[in-house]
Design a protein around this nucleic acid. Structure first.
Lengths: 208, 208, 208, 208
DNA sequence: ACCATCGGGACGTCCCGTTTTT
DNA sequence: AAAAACGGGACGTCCCGATGGT
């Protein structure tokens, strides 16, 4: 039997297992703060076993980051599924992310900020991936605003870049602050503001 | 007893020199990312020289963090000086912080988030200092809102905790995102939103 | 069913070829010092080929040891063939073994000591085989002494255990020392002593 | 206080501690069979700590071997102390070594054979040290025989090289065999033979 | 305040024995 | 039977933080 039940080579299974184990560790302790020894003990594999699948700690960290982002992206996609209106989808994305404060998708905070904060001035490759992830998130929000405008849900004079900057900044800031203050109320208040703000730019009479 | 012209002991001068040199290094590269060797080459002193003034890397990092926060606090105080209205002071604080995106007070981003992101799950002492700094910032904003309400500048039904959560979260998020995307426009848009928001809660009919 | 001219299955031939090639390699470099890769290059087969015939390196090492011992035992048997007197057979065995110093039956020294020295505290199974081989050699010597006494060639008060301890110890020691000092004179002197000793315990007044 | 009570730098103490700990480990498990990890756990130091004092595992193994030999040499010297007659000293050396079978100076057998058996065909430097140690032992025995002859204790026609070859070979062989068979009787019989042999070459009428 | 030294430990290569896959 | 892949683990460099000693 050369393949597993899923039709994968054995190595692919191991590789994924490493990734799934390493992702939360990197996210909690950071790149420098995560030792290969920690990953050895977390995965149960030995150093050689890990290095058979990843050329370096660096390559593993990048793959783990991408794995984390894929999880977040999937969660966003799932949150938007079944919601027809673009503005509704925007609200769904915000609420999906907001849930992180109480029940994190990946422990240790948002991988994008974590990575950006540590990798700035330090690790260009990780920084580039982090930047790409943020860019893609902001593009998603921008596209939803544009669609909402096309659908007549949002006023035409609203700058989609302003919305995406506000949403990402305030949510990322709120995650950091909620975590550091052990107070998810911080996130709740920020989300409440964002939802109010969405009402205020909506064409619906009942909003501000 | 060697004293400088200012009447300080010689040791105190060296100590302050170390602190001033170390602060931006820690802020850029983080606690783990900053080696004693890097501080040696930054300060021009030898390791022994540094250890004469600080018991450990840890103690130095904490002192450097506090030094950084003192600088920020001083900048806030200066920005508020001469502004009479509490709401005006609130705007001044936001604009003062916003300037960081283009012309940082300390290179490497805001020490509070930097420290919180790295120290979470890692370094309780640094985290505590970071938390205290954030708490003090939020109290300042809360006090300004309360004063503004007392002065009739801001509507009485506004929750000061909501304001401080929004301001700190969005500004901290914006700093991280501006830096990572090399785009200070992100900060500008967030600040514009905050100022609009201040108008929207102000009792002044005309806006600013 | 592929069979050779001798009527052996093809697999059995390969197995014996592996054994014959592996035996001197293990004897020279030891168990730990012999890698499967070395055996691959010595045999010309690939790893898979070897593993088809031996379940593990361990199993192969044990088989190689037994193969080595069989060669020595055969040599002893051949040396004794045609010698009638038990004392003569004893002398023949000593001289047969002594030849090892100059012209080894298996390169790398006596497999019994080699294995015993390495496997002690390390590899119980190899050690057990080594012990069995030594035991069998000492029993052979003891039996020859007893037969010589029965035949009136050796004095009755001689302890056969003393003879076998002396013969095996001094020959094994001599092999190690001859090899390490690159001086087969060491073996020659020890053999000379043993032969003198045999004379001294013999009932023959004239010696020889 | 730059020095310890014994006037040594701190490093020298650590170095000796490593040596004392490593010596029995190497002697029991051999050079290849001893991992740096084993020495780490035996010494309580970390790898870096050990490598601060020894350039390589190889260098440490050589130093440990020399340390072992020094212990043996000291024991021989102590055994000869207070014995006036050269033949008596010879007997003392044999008895001193013989004690190894029951109560080893260093666990794991005689380092000279252990090293010679493993290092032959493998590790020239260790082999050279082993050879030097054996040479020095044989020279000691040769010198004692020569002195005994000069003192008239031993017959003039005895070849000192024959004596040293016999003594070293049979004792080394006996140690290996006693250990592998878990039977110190083997050593006892060989020693008894050697003492008889010394009587037989002595000029004393009462000997054979 | 300097320099040398110390012990700690991360990283990652290399190769080993074995298993899978072909 | 061959070849490739797999997991294990040894070795040793490098540098880190910290501590003497001068």
């Amino acid at each position: 039997m050369p393949r597993t039940a899923q039709g994968e080579r054995k190595g692919a299974v191991t590789r994924r297992r490493i990734l799934e184990t390493a992702t939360p560790v990197f996210n909690r302790f950071g790149y420098a703060g995560t030792s290969m020894a920690a990953l050895v003990s977390a995965t149960g594999l030995e150093k050689g076993g890990i290095y058979n699948h990843f050329a370096s700690k660096d390559a593993l960290a990048v793959a783990a980051f991408d794995h984390a982002i894929a999880q977040v992206t999937d969660a966003f996609t799932a949150a938007r599924a079944g919601v027809n209106s673009p503005l509704g989808q925007l609200r769904a994305v915000v609420e999906c992310f907001a849930r992180w404060a109480d029940d994190p998708l990946i422990p240790g905070g948002c991988p994008i900020v974590n990575t950006a904060v540590e990798a700035d001035d330090t690790n260009p490759e990780l920084l580039a991936h982090s930047r790409a992830a943020m860019d893609s998130w902001q593009r998603l929000i921008g596209a939803l605003v544009r669609d909402a405008q096309a659908a007549g849900e949002v006023r035409a004079d609203v700058d989609k870049r302003a919305v995406s900057a506000l949403v990402t900044s305030s949510l990322e800031g709120a995650i950091v602050i909620s975590r550091m203050m052990h107070d998810s109320g911080q996130m709740r208040r920020v989300v409440a503001h964002l939802l109010d703000y969405f009402d205020s730019i909506s064409t619906d009479r009942n909003g501000t």
